[in-house]
Every structure is written in structure tokens, then in C-alpha cells.
Design a binder for these strands. Structure first.
Lengths: 345, 345
DNA sequence: CTGAAAGCGCTTACAG
DNA sequence: CTGAAAGCGCTTACAG
């Protein structure tokens, strides 16, 4: 392989074909090659074919970095999420991926592990890539993060929950309303001493919003309220089972448990089954998210379906729309939720 | 906000602080600012502090694109996987993320949906980002893809299965050996008429390797062999249940079913429970992957644990090692697997 | 430990 | 529909 000579600004790297080489081979200018590749409609069919041929012959791979520097915009969409352990975020990312990939963008993924300092670091790094827009899970950020994004000035979509004042656009659902809906359902079913159980509900503040919506609804119905049962480790089915056992030792024992998510709730049902705890006879169990497996356990899990794939898709579509034609009229989309009642309550 | 004047090569964009602005403010040269940020050890503590201060005052965000172009290398690690629906790849990605993030790299994620044309497209695009290395799930690629990567010449790790001839480095396990181990176990338990059940085992060729290892082992033990039960849709717990029902209608009905993965197998156990099918009395059930939930269903699922998080971690570590100090001696790591015997067999 | 010069490989308006 | 010139914001060796 050829190497470029050592000169100021040069590095010792096998020299790959560049636009210039393709242009020479096709007998056109580099500009024409650039257009044939990026805006084929602007180039005559004849030249387009000659360029295509030269590209194939040379095995030319476009240098996206140079393109991004020259155009001050990269074909990437950064997505910042708080966790990958939770299937919800993975499915949301899939929804985003579906849409942005079709539009020729790549996904840059940042995982904050529910740490707002890390969120700031990710966003700051990502902005250095000159992306045309940004997708963030959540509406809670540090003030400096918000300031950074606002100064930056390009389109942003905050997804998952609908929040008080979005930075730009916002797609999600009301977790407070979801919690309230579950409280009403459990009371209507005649359960008493309702308990909320979740993990890290300070960091996972959407779970906290569900708890507060749940708790306020209990108050409004005049039902007994109690503090949530919490653990400071990530959710898992095994933990949901442990928390069930712990909850049943409380005095009075809960007549129903509303788990912060289906991972926990499914684990509770499996544990109940294993230990012969009657559900919902002794204790009713409900979850949140509507994971596929919630319908397969016995009894089936009553849960609330969060349309997370749709959140990803709609969020990405709004972002792409704003990138292409400027920010839209509708800044907020509440995708709602659906209560699915099954045997567990 | 200020905008730059319209000139050839310039775009109408609010002008953000650049290295030059930071340099002016700190009273040093841009080179020094670059070093203070990227190689702080090369700069005196005094200048480092002045630069830091200027950076904060101006809210300077490093332009990674320009840095990548100048240095012919981006701080990104592209990762190409065949699916995100499968928890296995998500956990592998988490293992990779853990390691590369600590080293200051970002993850570029490509999902091929088990389509090798899309794999080629992703890799081709990713190479245009000048990454220092590449992580690919799988060892099967189109010849043109292999040629592209080999010409490129930087470190590559192929993960998931140990394959015949890695492009560069390889971390995974032998899926054939895993299939054989499960066949031996089921035969030792006295089960007969063993059946393999999976989805899309042509595209998901690692599942195919498990089947072939399983099938060859049956042959070597003189046990009855039969074609696999397959479906041409993605795996899911619900589908595993359906396939159980279908399998039991075969003549002769299987004494044990080895599912291609735990998603299917867990679904089969839940369905068996719901329909009162005795496991393992009427039919034994086994899976592959060792998902957490496999230990929580009743009966517990016999499965093979694939150390996927470790595969991600080790793969990323090998890649970073090769990026820093050149390709290592050990090109292949077989991480092995573990058979976990529970009540379902 | 610090700096001046050159260059990375593209794309952007403008003119034709 | 096509092209010449300038510039994007950094980093790389080299010299001091």
C-alpha cells in the first residue's frame, strides 16, 4: 500500500481513494462527484453513471468526517437514554432507529445510567459532532445542560414523559395520569391497603411521577395511603419477587401492589406461583409498560401499556421534520397509555 | 447571535466558540489549547488552568469533526449487530459500552436485521467516520465486505461465535459445542425423540450451528434425529408457546424440546403451565442464553449460559488494546459456556 | 514545554 | 447542468 509522505499535517496511513481520485478517474471535477453522490438529481444521468463506475472501481468510501466539517452538519442523530437494562428504552431506540435510518442518519448512543452529570457530558460531546438535532430521554436536565442546548439552537426532542416546559419538542405520556388510572382501577376492584413498589424512584423520576399520581388519586378517593416500598438497585424480575415477600410482611399487608414496572411485577407473579401465594386472592399485582411477557404469566398481569416504540418513532419523525423544514407548530405530543386488565387484579 | 458572513465555504450558522477564540482569551496559541484539552500532561499546570478557565467562560465545545479530520481518526467505535430485539445483543452492547466509554470512545450502532447487504452498507458508512477499529457480531460476511475491511487495515473484532478464520480478532463461544452439550444432557436424562425448535435459523446461523451440533451429537449417540421445527418470524415468548403446542402434535411427540433461545423456551414453560402440560413429565424443555427469567419460571428452565456481557467486554478490551499497541498475539478467545440444569429437564 | 505552517477531504455559494 | 476557489476547525510533526 502507498503511504503519504510525512509532512506537516499529514499522517502515516495507507492512502485510500478520495473524491479527487474518483473525479480524475471519471473525468469530472470533484464537485460533480460530490453532487452525484449526495444530490444525484442535480447531475446528468451520464455523469452520474460515470461517477458510480469510478466509485466502484476504486472502492471509494466517502469520508463523512470531511463532509461534516465542510457542511457543519453530520448525518448522525445522538440519542441519550438513562438505561439500557430496561427493555423500554431499547424498544424506544428501535423506534427511533427505524425512522432515522430510513432518512440516512446514524444513531449515536449515550447511556447516562440515570446520572445527570453524565448526561451533560454526553450531550456536550455529541454537540461536537455537529449533529442536525438531538433526542433526549426525559425532560429533567441540569440548568447548565439546558443552557448548553438552548445556545446551540438546533432542534431537540425530549421523549418519554410529557413535561412542563420542553426545551423544544416533546413526545411522551403523563406518568402521573397513568399512576392515577391504576389507583382507580385497583380501588374499583375492591382492593385495599394499596402499595407502590419500585426501584430508585428518585433517579427514575418517571416511576416517581407514577407513584405521586397513584398516591394523589388514593387521597382523592379517601383511600389509605402509605409510603412506597423502594430499593436502591436496578429493577429485575428476581427483585420483584423479593419485594413481594417483603411487602406481605408489612402491617397491614397490602391488598394490592402496583409495581413501578413489569419486570418487577412479572417476577412477583412468578414468585407467588412458586410459593403458592394466591394472586389476586391474597394480593393483587399490577405493573407498568405492557411487556409481551405480562400476558403470558399465570394469572395474566394487569398493566399499563406505554407506547414506547411509537414514542421513538414519533419523536424521530418530529425531529427530522424540524431539521428539514424548521420547527413545527405542534411542540408536544401526548401519546397516551392503555390500561390492560388481566387476572392478576 | 453573530453569524459569519456569506463567503465561499462558509455557512450561515451562529458562530460558536472555536479553539482560536479560546486561545485568544487564554493568551496562548491554538496548539496549546488543543494539547491542554487532549494531552494535558504535555502542558504546564499554569497554562492548563488558564485554558480551562477560558473554555468555561466561552462555553467552548470541542469540534470532534475537525479533530477527526485532522487526525484521521474519530473517537468512535462502530458496532454492528444483527438485531436489537434479542436481549443477548443488548447485553453484549452494554458490555462493550462499559469498556469503550471509559476509554473515551463513543458507540456508533448499526442494526442489520440479519441482512448481509445491510451489514455491508453499515460498515461502508462507518469506515467513512475514520474509526480506529470496528466490532462486528458474527464471522459470516459477504466477500466484498471482508475485502473492504481487509483493505481498510485497522483492528477488527468479530464477536459472538468463534469462527473458522477471523478477519483479525475473534471473541465468542462454540455454538456447535453448546448444542452438542445439550443433546448429551437430554439423552442422559433419558429423554427420547429430541426436537430442536427455533426461528429463522438460516439468518440466525448461530442458532443453526447449535442445531447442527445438537443433531450431530444425537447421531454420534445413535439417537433418533429429526428435522428442526422452525418459524420464519422473530423469536418471542408467545411464539415459543405456540411451537410447544405444535410440537406435541408431531408423531411421535418429542420427549424433549431444545429451543434455540430462552425467549422461546420461557414462553413454552409458561404456556405448558397455563395448559396443564407436565414439564418435564410429558415433555422436557431446554433453552439457550441463560436469561435471568429462566431461573424464575416453574419449573426452572434448563439452559446454557452464554457469557454475552463478557463477550462484549473482552471484545472491546481486545480492540482497544490493538488500537493502542498494535494487534495482539492472541487472536481468538473462546469464552466457553455453562450448562445450568434445572427442573424443566 | 510552546508555536507557525500546512494540511486533512470534503461542501458551499457563486458564476457560467 | 458543471467548475474554480475558499474555507470548515482542528492536529501533526518539526523546530526551538
Amino acid at each position: 500500500m502507498k503511504t503519504v509522505p510525512r509532512m506537516p499535517g499529514a499522517r502515516e496511513v495507507p492512502s485510500a481513494a478520495t473524491l479527487k481520485h474518483v473525479a480524475e478517474r471519471a473525468g469530472v471535477s470533484p464537485i460533480t462527484v460530490s453532487r452525484a453522490l449526495n444530490k444525484p438529481a442535480m447531475v446528468s444521468a451520464d455523469l452520474r453513471d460515470r461517477v458510480r463506475l469510478a466509485v466502484d472501481e476504486l472502492g471509494y468510501v466517502q469520508n463523512r468526517v470531511a463532509g461534516a466539517l465542510a457542511s457543519a452538519s453530520s448525518p448522525v442523530i445522538p440519542v441519550v437514554v438513562p438505561s439500557l437494562s430496561n427493555a423500554v428504552f431499547v424498544e424506544t431506540i428501535q423506534g427511533i432507529q427505524e425512522v432515522v435510518q430510513r432518512a440516512g442518519f446514524q444513531l449515536l448512543l449515550g447511556n447516562t445510567e440515570y446520572d445527570l452529570d453524565r448526561e451533560h457530558a454526553w450531550i456536550s460531546t455529541f454537540l461536537g459532532w455537529s449533529p442536525p438535532g438531538l433526542i433526549l430521554a426525559g425532560t429533567r436536565h441540569q440548568p447548565r445542560t439546558r443552557a448548553l442546548i438552548e445556545r446551540w439552537g438546533r432542534p431537540v426532542v425530549e421523549i418519554m414523559e410529557v413535561g412542563a416546559k420542553p426545551i423544544d419538542m416533546n413526545v411522551g405520556l403523563s406518568h402521573g395520569a397513568a399512576g392515577a388510572a391504576m389507583a382507580r382501577h385497583l380501588l374499583e376492584r375492591g382492593h385495599a391497603n394499596l402499595l407502590f413498589a419500585g426501584c430508585r424512584i428518585a433517579e427514575d423520576y418517571r416511576a416517581g411521577q407514577r407513584f405521586r399520581g397513584f398516591d394523589r388519586a388514593l387521597a382523592s378517593f379517601g383511600a389509605a395511603r402509605r409510603p412506597p416500598l423502594t430499593r436502591n438497585v436496578p429493577s429485575s424480575p428476581a427483585l420483584g419477587g423479593d419485594m413481594l415477600v417483603e411487602a406481605l410482611r408489612l402491617d397491614p399487608p397490602p391488598g394490592a401492589i402496583f409495581y413501578a414496572n413489569d419486570d418487577l411485577a412479572v417476577g412477583a407473579i412468578l414468585r407467588a406461583q412458586r410459593e403458592g401465594i394466591a394472586v389476586p386472592g391474597r394480593v393483587a399485582i399490577a405493573g407498568f409498560n405492557g411487556l409481551d411477557i405480562s400476558g403470558l404469566v399465570t394469572p395474566g398481569l394487569t398493566t399499563i401499556v406505554s407506547p414506547r416504540r411509537a414514542i421513538g418513532r414519533i419523536g424521530a419523525e418530529k425531529l427530522l421534520g424540524a431539521i428539514e423544514v424548521g420547527s413545527p407548530k405542534v411542540r408536544r405530543v401526548d401519546v397516551g397509555f392503555e390500561l390492560i386488565v388481566r387476572g392478576s387484579t
